[in-house]
Design a protein around this nucleic acid. Structure first.
Lengths: 241, 241
DNA sequence: AAGTGGTCTAGACCACGCG
DNA sequence: GCGTGGTCTAGACCACTTT
């Protein structure tokens, strides 16, 4: 099956997306070896330069590792997105982590709680909104409110979330990946609503994070307003080059 | 000047390290364009595949950006690292940014303010400690306390800081690069000392960040405890894949 | 028009892992 | 020995930016 580049997509992107799709849809599972570079070259009628460019991107995005003399193997994609995570959500694996959906996804007007300026095309329609509370060891530590454009993505039912995760659902069922994020952080004092949900007293300090996630679907941004009780479980991240 | 690959180092790594050194030593400054790919090929007697592999790595490590039709440009690397920066320090270029050294580097015992567990070899000697207050538009927004092992790096005089920056001094004068960082974030209420420095009232919420920077010198970590008034200038970061 | 980076071809030789 | 990925050559054509 020979392919040809279009003005839209160079060959290496076609091959990269083909392989990525096989991984995301489970045709290639974690631990499996990809077909060899020569095999893919033959299959698509391309040269090794091209397939290697495609594999380099999959490597950088954390989908595969390369093993000299053996092949390219699919790995669990735990790529540190560089985003902030609650210490304990990812590290203290022994802890009991739980998520309660306070508000299932529903159509609402855009909220002025959102800390970013919305794009013109997003304002053309209502938003899909949902709200969750995350617990560690039965202590509520993170109140999370999320919005996205209902034009960019239909309303997803909370019960259909893959492993309860919104992002995994995007990846597995809609082939949409998180491509980046912008965050702003504020130290604030808890108001009544937030104090009640996080079970702390009004006026306690909370960490407020405004996030805009960018996705591989250009018109889809996900906006999150997160409030954290950092007293027992600080927010943290790590960057290693 | 033709180069040849050794068993130790392939050509693309030689070229990559050559260019990286030019950037680190300030021969190529932020904003400068690298010599064109063809020029580097001619200079080293290599083909474009090779120089492009070298540039890909510099791109991934955040040293350069590529501009089609123009060239490859050196960029400020801290942004690519995904570390948190005060909105305004890096973005609002029109704003007036100022740093006051409250405590010049001096030898002191290690402080128990440090939010990380120190390594055994670090505890063998005293620390070098310095303390700074950063202003935006004459408002103090960030109180910063820093420590590092006096065995790993001699005491640097504040007046010798390149452009007033500790990290630039490490890079330019000591060829030490930041290789990564771990951060923990806490929302806290300001105590007397911090309230006084940041000119806010005691009990106001402040964002407290504990950071351990890892460097290319394995025995050198830099510990920072930072307190931010996020009211007017939130802390932010951005991550693009 | 000239120069830059983006993509691609069609080869080559090497070091590594495994049977 | 054979297949794998790692590196490299010597070209080519394209799209983009600047002069």
């Amino acid at each position: 099956m020979k392919i040809s580049a279009t003005t839209e997509k160079p060959k290496y992107k076609i091959v990269r997306d083909h392989l990525k799709k096989m991984i995301q849809q489970g045709e290639l599972k974690v631990g499996d070896y990809l077909p060899s570079e020569h095999a893919v070259c033959a299959q698509f009628g391309i040269t090794r330069t091209t397939i290697r460019k495609a594999l380099d991107e999959l490597l950088n995005d954390g989908f595969i590792v390369k093993e000299k003399g053996k092949g390219s193997r699919v790995v669990e994609r735990m790529k540190a997105l560089g985003l902030l995570t609650v210490k304990g959500f990812s590290e203290a694996a022994g802890d009991d982590v739980k998520t309660i959906v306070l508000q299932s996804p529903e159509l609402t007007p855009w909220s002025d709680l959102i800390g970013f300026k919305l794009k013109a095309n997003e304002l053309k329609s209502d938003s899909v909104f949902f709200k969750r509370l995350r617990y560690i060891n039965d202590v509520p530590v993170m109140l999370e409110q999320n919005w996205y454009s209902s034009l960019a993505l239909p309303l997803l039912k909370a019960k259909d979330f893959v492993d309860g995760s919104f992002f995994k659902t995007l990846s597995r069922n809609h082939l949409i990946e998180i491509r980046g994020a912008e965050q702003m952080l504020y130290a604030e004092t808890a108001g009544e609503e937030i104090a009640k949900q996080l079970q702390i007293s009004v006026g306690s300090p909370v960490l407020h994070i405004s996030i805009r996630f960018k996705t591989t679907k250009p018109e889809l941004n996900i906006y999150s307003e997160v409030y954290c009780n950092t007293h027992n479980y600080p927010i943290g991240n790590r960057y290693i080059l």
